[in-house]
């Protein structure tokens, strides 16, 4: 059982900074990467705000952890699914998000985008094929 590779999906539905969930979820993702499971991240509802670019937390005196998402590729976390309807409902588009990439070791280390915008229907399909769904 412990040798088995499971599909882990981290579901992010909360915006950063108003509560600690986004930061502490990211900490689990980083630690979990060492376990060599099949990892994906889902961003829907207010969770899409975790990936926006231009976050500046100086005036609230809290650490800006948004640059950490750029490091995920180095941890082999390369599948970040963002729900299109959630973006639209909030007046956002893909251009409002950070451009995140990973190097594809199966394709001559070519740089590829990690974020994939999916429809609500596709998001439901992704959720339905997981072994473990972590939400915080």
């Amino acid at each position: 059982m412990s040798d088995e590779v499971k599909k882990f999906l981290y579901v992010n539905r909360k915006a950063p900074y108003g509560s600690i969930y986004a930061l502490e979820s990211l900490e689990v993702v980083l630690i979990g990467a060492a376990f060599e499971q099949e990892v994906s991240l889902a961003f829907l509802d207010d969770g899409v705000f975790q990936l926006t670019k231009g976050q500046d937390t100086k005036e609230i005196g809290v650490k800006n952890f948004s640059p950490t998402y750029r490091a995920l590729g180095d941890y082999d976390v390369t599948k970040l699914y963002v729900e299109e309807e959630s973006l639209k409902e909030r007046g956002l588009g893909i251009d409002d998000l950070q451009y995140l990439t990973y190097e594809d070791e199966d394709d001559d280390y070519k740089e590829k985008p990690s974020i994939k915008v999916v429809s609500r229907k596709e998001m439901a399909d992704i959720m339905a094929e997981q072994d473990i769904i972590l939400s915080f």
Binding site: E4, F8, I31, G32, A34, F35, I132, I133
Partner: peptide, 20 residues
């Protein structure tokens, strides 16, 4: 203990239930 215990729990359990 560390967060690794959470991941390990996910791997070893048949079902994970989250309360938050």
């Amino acid at each position: 203990s560390g967060l690794g215990q959470l991941i390990e729990m996910g791997i070893k359990s048949d079902r994970l239930v989250i309360f938050g």
